[in-house]
Structure formats: C-alpha cells, structure tokens
C-alpha cells in the first residue's frame, strides 16, 4: 500500500483552502459579520464597565486593582476569540447523533480536524484584535510592572490556554457517541466558563484547585495576568510547563475517546 503523509499534517498544508472557504462564507453575510463585531465590542465594554462600577463602589478586589481587571478582560477576550475560531465544535454532538459525521469520514482527511477547519469562524479575528487592544490599553494606561520576557511568557500561556478550555469541551461533546443527546451536558459545562472572567486567585482554595486541575480555566486569563504583572519569570515558566503537561493529557484523552467513539458510531442507524 502506498504510504501517504499523516492526515493531521496534511490539514495544516491545506489550511489556506479552509481559510479561503471561511472568507467566502463571511462575504456572503456581511451584515452578520459587522453586527457580530459590534457585539464583541459591546461585550468587552460591558465587562470593563462592570469592573469599573464594582471597584468604584467597593475598592480593589483583593490584590486586583482596575488595571489588572482590564488586563484580565483583555486575556479573556483573546481566549474566547480563539475559541470562537473553532466554534463549530459546538455542533459535534449533533454531527454524531444525526450521522452528519459521515461526510467527514468518507474523505481522505482526519475527520475531526476537517470538520473543525472546514467551518473556521473568522468572526473570531476582530474579537482577538479587541482583546489585544485592551491589553495594550491596560499596559499603557495603568501603572503595571512587567518585563518584555514576562509579556512573552504571558502571551504564550494565553495562546495555549485556549486549548485547556477547548479540549475538555470537545471531550464532553464526544459523549454523544455513548449517550446520544450530549447537548445538555455540553450546555451545562459551558456555563462554567463564566469563571474565566473572574480573578480566581481570590477565590477559596477548592475553587482554585478545581479550576486548575479538573477544568483548567485558571489559565485562560488569571494566570496570564499573574505571569505578566506579579510572578517572577521562573514561576511563569513553571506554570507554562504545567500548562503544557495538562494540554498533553487532555489531547491524549480526547484522542483516546475519539477513536473509541468512532468504533461505536452508529451513523444514525441503518
């Protein structure tokens, strides 16, 4: 049998085709695209306003002043922006339940990657940009201590942290292979994401433990802010290493369940 390159690598090679597809799709619905950008701006502004009103009324949130809260909001916005790029994952339970997954299984592709990349959502890009602008605003307007290297480590942590919320979510969606209607567990799980917006270090230890190990949402924004403005570079690197270990475990678990799930896949019966 003629050996071809591994399916995963191939997807990155043909990534431009997926992007072109996404651009075409967006250009079909320009109004939706612009409304969505407006919505992103308003959402970020609302969180900033929320912290402003709260801190004006009660003072700093423990060790978190308004400047850090702005940074937190910036990192969450970037994180959710990256998430939004692959938001089609939301439909995975439905794809499994109704047999829509078939169309990805009959092509020489990695079915999961193909499904996600074929539906890239470019509306995420303005959101990521808004997040970056918020970070720039925070770093230039508030007296926050940071170094160039802490900025790099925080940036890498932020970039990778998207996977720490995405992979458990994707894994939850895989339950559809076993239980059919997994949408409700998925919807329950997504509710927890609101915790990303909070400075989790000020929460009780049990919360910190859960959001570090079980559902590692602490890496989405809290840890990047700490790495950028509070911790030493050594601690930052250590946290980054921990993050990489967690992501590796998550990827392994997802891959394992995906392969198991495919064996059980019923493709909407006969």
């Amino acid at each position: 049998m003629k050996f071809r390159e591994r399916s995963i690598v191939k997807h990155f090679r043909i990534l431009p085709e997926y992007v072109k597809l996404a651009v075409k799709r967006e250009s079909e619905y320009k109004l939706g695209f612009y409304t969505f950008i407006f919505h992103q701006l308003v959402t970020a502004a609302i969180w900033l306003l929320f912290w402003k009103v709260l801190i004006n009324k009660i003072g700093d949130f423990g060790s978190w002043n308004y400047g850090r809260m702005v940074l937190l909001t910036g990192f969450v916005t970037i994180n959710m922006g990256m998430w939004l790029t692959f938001v089609f994952i939301w439909r995975l339970p439905r794809q499994i339940l109704t047999g829509e997954l078939n169309s990805h299984l009959i092509k020489p592709v990695h079915p999961f990657l193909h499904m996600i990349l074929q539906h890239l959502n470019l509306r995420s890009l303005p959101r990521i940009l808004i997040g970056v602008l918020i970070l720039i605003y925070a770093l230039s307007h508030f007296e926050l201590q940071y170094s160039r290297w802490s900025l790099v480590v925080a940036g890498v942590t932020s970039f990778l942290s998207f996977l720490t919320s995405f992979m458990p979510f994707a894994t939850i969606c895989l339950l559809a292979f076993w239980i059919g209607r997994a949408e409700f567990i998925r919807d329950l799980f997504i509710e927890l994401f609101v915790f990303q917006n909070y400075p989790l270090t000020e929460f009780p230890t049990v919360f910190i433990a859960v959001f570090t190990v079980v559902i590692p949402l602490i890496f989405s924004a809290t840890v990047p802010v700490l790495v950028l403005t509070k911790l030493s570079l050594g601690w930052g690197m250590l946290l980054l290493a921990g993050l990489i270990i967690i992501i590796s475990l998550q990827l392994w678990l997802f891959g394992f369940l995906w392969n198991r799930g495919l064996r059980r896949y019923e493709s909407y019966g006969g």
């Binding site: 619905y29 109004l31 939706g32 409304t35 969505f36 407006f38 919505h39 308003v42 959402t43 609302i46 306003l49 929320f50 009103v53 709260l54």
Partner: peptide, 22 residues
C-alpha cells in the same frame, strides 16, 4: 438573514443593564 449576533448583543447588554450581574 442572521439574527444570532443580535441575540448575543442583547444578552450582553441586558446582562449588565438588567441587574443580572450587578
């Protein structure tokens, strides 16, 4: 064609202005 962004927009605004968050 697509009203989903409007719904999200409404949810964001009402979250703060309705007293749901604060």
């Amino acid at each position: 064609y697509e009203v989903f962004p409007i719904e999200r927009f409404y949810k964001s605004v009402s979250g703060l202005l309705s007293g749901e968050l604060i």
